[in-house]
Design a protein around this nucleic acid. Structure first.
Lengths: 194, 194
DNA sequence: AACGGCCTGTGATCTACCTCACTTAAAAAG
DNA sequence: CTTTTTAAGTGAGGTAGATCACAGGCCGTT
């Protein structure tokens, strides 16, 4: 492992161990299955219609995952900043074609994990199976909250909650993308801010 | 274990083993941690503001999980029929107070699982940790699809997809509840059907 | 048979939000 | 520094869907 890769990996180890501690040997085994990749702004990690061999863990930078409707409008499923996981999970798990796009809103470094490697890791390292179980639970809870928010809150309240919950993200992301995440038009969001 | 309980449990075992096989000894251990409960139509399993000690697995019947807004309107997060899991996962995991209601749309039999028992099961039985990890992944994927659907599809298309994907459910559930699930008013849904 | 609930459909408004068009400002790209 | 691209605010007008109000149908109860 290169020095650069070690530094990158250290962040991932901390991230995992916040939930499920690893021995050095386990970490050594786990980290071997991630491959680092650098991307420039506007590069795609996933494109609709393509296979999705990897799950991505963001070391640095900022991604957006979005669906495009027949009018060409983007609807943002998820942003992913440092220490977030992101991929088209449906296509990834079922080894089918992507239904969404994922691209870089800023230059990014990511760690890539193949499905079969994830399964190997979970099979060999008990703590990692636990990690992914808990991580997945937390993700499920977050999505439930978003669905409730979409169903019962008016646009203004959804916007307020977003700013309160992810102030750093709201800074970093152009407002038109926040609109696409909240499910309102750019113009409406602009008017809401008063 | 009573005969009745054995029969009920058999369904759960099949459900689990469809994802992750168990030895008889493991199943014996696992099943001990579930407690059966019967409920009448309109009874609550979870009420907003109360603690949420259990995750529920539906043996028979039909639940709805919903949030209520300030106007008293219901927004349905999830239906749960036979073989579905349901609870307020946020409150359950964090042992905090429920943000939603869950009640029986029909008379129900459920199996109840305490958080600490779920963790015990996952800790003791490797196959169960795998089961919950995979189940949770699948749930996450389903919620991602629903979010994309809410963001990019007009009400009519959401309704069509719902009927295609869950025809049995759409039969069983009063249409006003389908409307509350889709995020449209009862009247609008009625007009859409033409 | 008659009563009260609950569900569903339908007409008549009303409104939150969308779309289109234009302007200004700021940031990349050259 | 200049040009091109991208972001953001604002006005005018349109529309999907909300809300309100009422009517008929289908239960299970008395």
């Amino acid at each position: 492992m290169t020095t650069a890769k070690k530094e990158i990996g250290a962040g991932l180890r901390r991230h995992i161990e916040a939930i499920s501690p690893l021995t050095d040997a386990e970490w050594e085994f786990v980290s071997r299955h991630f491959t680092p990749r650098k991307l420039r702004k506007h590069q795609y990690l996933v494109q609709q219609g393509d296979p999705v061999p990897y799950d991505f863990w963001v070391v640095s930078g900022l991604l957006k995952a979005y669906a495009v409707d027949e009018d060409g409008k983007e609807h943002i499923l998820q942003f992913a900043m440092e220490e977030w996981w992101c991929t088209d999970y449906h296509a990834y798990q079922t080894e089918s074609k992507a239904a969404i796009f994922i691209d870089c809103m800023e230059a990014c470094e990511v760690l890539c994990l193949r499905l079969r490697d994830r399964e190997t890791i979970c099979g060999q390292v008990r703590a990692m199976e636990r990690f992914f179980r808990i991580k997945s639970n937390l993700g499920y809870i977050a999505l439930q909250k978003r669905i409730i928010s979409l169903l019962k809150e008016p646009a203004e309240e959804r916007f307020g909650n977003l700013i309160r919950q992810y102030p750093r993200l709201a800074q970093r992301v152009p407002k038109k993308h926040l609109a696409a995440y909240l499910g309102v038009s750019r113009e409406t969001l602009s008017r809401l801010k008063k």
